[in-house]
Every structure is written in structure tokens, then in C-alpha cells.
Amino acid sequence: MSSKTEQREPEHVQTLGHEEYDPIGTAILIGIYFLILVLLWIFMYFVEFLGNGPTVVGMALTVVGLA
């Protein structure tokens, strides 16, 4: 596989192996993404959706009413 995957770019200035590479930037970006997801989810569910009533509700109440 090596012949298929070897790759050297002119801009290449250092080689980092799995051990010495710490994807801290990725962790920060993904953390921000996580926060965005949580906040947008809460906004969409509790403001956009639950605030968009009337909403279809269960039949349980009707059944009780008819009984």
C-alpha cells in the first residue's frame, strides 16, 4: 500500500507520527460544534417547535372524556 499512499508536498516542513501529534485544534473546533448543536437543538425544540402550537396531542384525554 505504501506506494499508493506515499506523499510529499513541497510545503512539508515536519513529519508528525501518531504519538507526537495532539489534535488540540480539532478538539476545540469539535467542542464549538458540540455547543452549537446543543444550543440550536434546544432553540428548535422548545422555541420553534413547542411554541408553534396547536400541536397534535394524544388520544388519552379524549378516551377518558368519552368514558
Partner: peptide, 25 residues
Amino acid sequence: TAFTVVASMEHGARQRGGEGYLGWL
């Protein structure tokens, strides 16, 4: 996938001399 792919990009950026928490972008 989001993590793996971004980490791979960051790896490339750091090998190209990128530095900092987000400066590598």
C-alpha cells in the same frame, strides 16, 4: 467522521508548519 477528518486536516496543516490552537487553519 467529523473528528477524524478534521484531525487529519490539522495533521496536514501542522506538517506544513501550522501552529497555535486554531492558527493551523
